[in-house]
Design a protein around this nucleic acid. Structure first.
Lengths: 353, 353
DNA sequence: TTGATGGCCTGGATCGATACAGAAGACACG
DNA sequence: CGTGTCTTCTGTATCGATCCAGGCCATCAA
């Protein structure tokens, strides 16, 4: 004799009070006598009533207490990127402090668009999405408060992120100052489906290359390599050929668009019997935790991913609260570590330093 | 002249059809003529209607398409633990394939209990929670399908996880076989609030120690160290004293209850000028990515965290679908790498191997 | 005794959608 | 021409809560 799920009404009827009184017993203890409250809760537990239904409450209240995060590509890949994990960490910290929960919404998958449309959220944070990702359009149509992190830039939507081109340019200038003359850039394809849209990786590559070329480097002295994906093994595999060349035929400095790739390069250098930075200077981007711990510690661009996550979440919460917001400036800083050094003399004209 | 938010009704009235037809235009295109559908959608977009409200739909349908994950302590810490991130990765992969979203629910914080109670989810996955965490009670009371990962074990709730004691015992036997006689175990406090409850870390420590003692090791030859938290710097800091002793006065093998801590020990060994494994054998637990990449590569216990995440999610989805489930057996496997070696002869009686 | 105050509780309206049964019209068939 | 089937669309009931205006009763000052 399985009775059906109890509701506020069921409990109210049995306890001999109104539905509203039961609701108050849970949500506003000060609105009823404690005697009544105790009795109501006792009846509720006897009936197996587990408290007001969150979905129904949300419908009535018109808020969910949840912020959605839409992530690049299929959601699973998010967790293989320590940079994204750090951003999530920041978002979570801020939301958690405000008593909000975090809904992870996959983008780029089969029903990604529909998931964005059906997500029960008060706001959406778009993380590193291609401008033409259908999930972006779906998010905009939802008419909920939006924030973007990294990409894309949307009109009237606050964006959190560094100026990738400028930051990459600073890496280029730094390597030039160290006397390097031949360079490689290691990037990665940015998604299986569309490569047309310009991503932050493109900005990094271009910012780096343009600066070098403007400073007089021959375009042919800036080799661009593309790894299969943004992972350490891919980074390792993709530079094997480069590192197997004789010293005079290979670049003396390499810039990888992510630390993950840069770490793969360090692995490859070890494999090839090269010493970093003596034989090759390596610089990365993001300053993930592993960058400072690698051997040698990785020179990279730090841009406070955690802080960007926090900022994005704060912008979302402010918009939910109806406040007007303005995106904060995020500062990128070159972290000079031991994976970069002056270029070997032989490759510099003039010899004397 | 801001007209209020349009609803199905608004659109229906303007388009001259019934509310249900508008709903069908979005959710069941085969239920109406395409001419009507086009007209309805056109009116909707003109009115700025952004599609059916997900919360209202969920209430009516009685399902949210969302699975909640309740994490140890304050949610933010979850992202500092690569093991947990890997589990999340697995959960996400499975959910994403099934078109479900993932709601992260913080436990252990101020309103954690209330967040669990208010989460709009079809099922909850409890990850490594203390049995007496109020979030656990709240989850049980919710009467939604539950799955636990690691801890706690609850009656009638499928649990995914390894047998920590047995796995730790295998580490102990392995080190005994290598001829070690003096040991250290590095563990960590498991939460700021309650230390009374028995966690998986306790199981690992006890499984390790009990095996050694049963094999004839004197209890005084198994030192237990407790790090401030589960982080690499803490692991490093906490063994400084140990490693600064003379060879005859320090253990020759150390077992850390997590890889993170073990990596910290490797750092400390480097600081102290010791060579691993010549001067000290180090073993960890979890087999996180960084374990294979460390110098030297870390001997550890692999237990397919990704797979456990997937399994947990699958169990949740099956329960939502009304199927009966049984928890799978998870196999833990000792990964022998280069951070462990035979004990130095001087510390073994009898000399000959 | 009267009117004001405040604590406790009630009932109807509402949030925005979907399910389901069935009506209306078009068309084919015997 | 009646009947049956198919497609397309409608209307009512329902999901489970919360808001809001107001009712009842006891206490208290005048």
């Amino acid at each position: 004799m399985a009775r059906e799920r109890p509701t506020l009404d069921t409990v109210a009827a049995v306890a001999g009070v109104s539905r509203m009184t039961v609701s108050n017993a849970y949500n506003r203890p000060d609105q009823l006598s404690s005697a009544t409250r105790v009795r109501v809760l006792e009846v509720a537990s006897r009936l197996g009533y587990s408290g007001p239904d969150p979905t129904a409450a949300s419908l009535r209240l018109r808020r969910t207490g949840t912020v959605g995060v839409v992530l690049t590509e299929r959601l699973p890949y998010a967790f293989t990127d320590p940079g994204l994990v750090t951003i999530l960490h920041g978002i979570t910290t801020e939301l958690s402090d405000a008593g909000n929960a975090l809904l992870l919404v996959p983008a780029g998958g089969a029903g990604s668009e529909s998931l964005v449309r059906h997500a029960m959220v008060d706001a959406l944070i778009l993380c590193s999405l291609a401008a033409d990702d259908p999930a972006v359009a779906a998010a905009v149509e939802r008419q909920v408060p939006l924030v973007t992190v990294g990409k894309p830039r949307l009109p009237r939507v606050p964006a959190v992120g560094v100026d990738n081109a400028t930051a990459a340019a600073s890496v280029a200038r730094y390597l030039l100052d160290l006397g390097h003359q031949r360079f490689a850039v290691l990037t990665t394809v940015t998604g299986k489906r569309r490569t047309s849209s310009r991503t932050l990786f493109h900005e990094r590559v271009d910012g780096f290359r343009d600066t070098l070329v403007e400073a007089g480097t021959a375009p042919s002295d800036v080799e661009v390599l593309t790894a299969a994906d943004n992972s350490r093994p891919s980074g390792r595999k993709d530079v094997i050929e480069l590192l197997s060349r004789t010293r005079t035929r290979r670049p003396s400095a390499l810039f990888a668009v992510t630390d993950i790739l840069a770490l793969g390069v360090l692995d490859a250098a070890t494999d090839a019997g090269l010493t970093v930075p003596r034989d090759l200077s390596v610089a990365g981007f993001d300053d993930i935790d592993a960058a400072a711990a690698s051997r040698p510690p990785l020179t990279t661009v730090a841009h406070d991913l955690f802080g960007q996550g926090r900022a994005a979440a704060r912008l979302a919460l402010r918009q939910i609260a109806g406040e007007s917001v303005r995106a904060p400036r995020i500062v990128a800083e070159l972290m000079e570590r031991a994976s970069t050094a002056r270029a070997p003399r032989s490759s510099r004209p003039g010899g004397a330093g």
